[in-house]
Amino acid sequence: MLSVNVFKGAELCEEEEWDFNADLNLKSHWQLSKLCKPLLEKSKKGVILIMSSNHGEATIPGCFPYNVTKTALKGLIQSLAIEWGPNIRTVGIAPGFIETEGNQKWFESFINPDEERRRTIEMHPVKRLGTPDEVGALCAFLATDAASFISGTVYLMDGGRSALMQD
């Protein structure tokens, strides 16, 4: 039984892995949004925050089907913003490398985890990885009245990595 996201090439991905990622990263957001809709409509200031990934904006080899499901979230975010507005806003957050257990396991899959961590950090203009607290702070801001004109878009927070052309 699968319990975490699947990162494979398109040729290697099994249908079960495709279905698992589609359910985990796309269907679950849609189902949870539908469940919350009546409560959010009552508040007349409801906000749905959908966690995407920098892989929804650009990706690298071997990230299929994860990247496909994260890309599809942009369509969900836009559709819900259009169809459920004005009383419900829908906003996506697309973090890049964040200090998480999953990323630590990925680093540990290399022969020299510390060297891979340093190499990865160097690909970010801010020269560090993001933190869960930073993701949470963006979520908190997006849920406030100060962000009431923000809907139907995805915010990429990747330490500038997407701005730097990678050779």
Rank of each mutant, 00 (worst) to 15 (best):
V68K: 04
A147R: 04
T131K: 15
I77D: 00
K44E: 14
S162I: 07
E108A: 12
R89W: 04
A22W: 05
S151Y: 03
G130S: 06
S148H: 10
V47G: 05
E99L: 13
M165Y: 10
P86N: 13
L156P: 00
R89T: 03
K70E: 05
T120D: 01
N54R: 11
P38Y: 12
G152V: 02
E101D: 15
W18M: 08
T100W: 05
N5C: 08
L129A: 02
E116D: 02
I50F: 02
P95Q: 14
E15F: 06
S28T: 15
Y155C: 10
N67I: 00
E41Q: 15
N54H: 06
G9R: 11
L26S: 05
A58C: 12
D133K: 15
M165W: 08
K74P: 00
E83N: 15
G46R: 07
N112Q: 11
N5E: 11
S79A: 15
E115N: 07
V91M: 05
A22N: 04
A163T: 13
I88D: 03
L73M: 12
K27Y: 04
L39V: 04
H55T: 12
T90W: 00
S52L: 05
T120P: 00
A163N: 10
F7A: 07
A147D: 03
E83C: 07
S3C: 08
S148I: 04
L142P: 01
R128S: 05
E134A: 07
E17D: 09
T144L: 06
N67G: 00
I50T: 11
C13T: 15
R161S: 07
S43I: 10
N21H: 04
L129I: 14
E115Q: 14
F141N: 11
N67Y: 00
L138K: 00
S53K: 09
E115G: 02
M51W: 02
I121P: 01
E101Q: 13
A10H: 03
H55G: 09
A72N: 06
F141K: 08
P132L: 15
D23S: 13
E101M: 09
A58Q: 13
F141I: 07
F107Y: 13
T131N: 05
D158R: 07
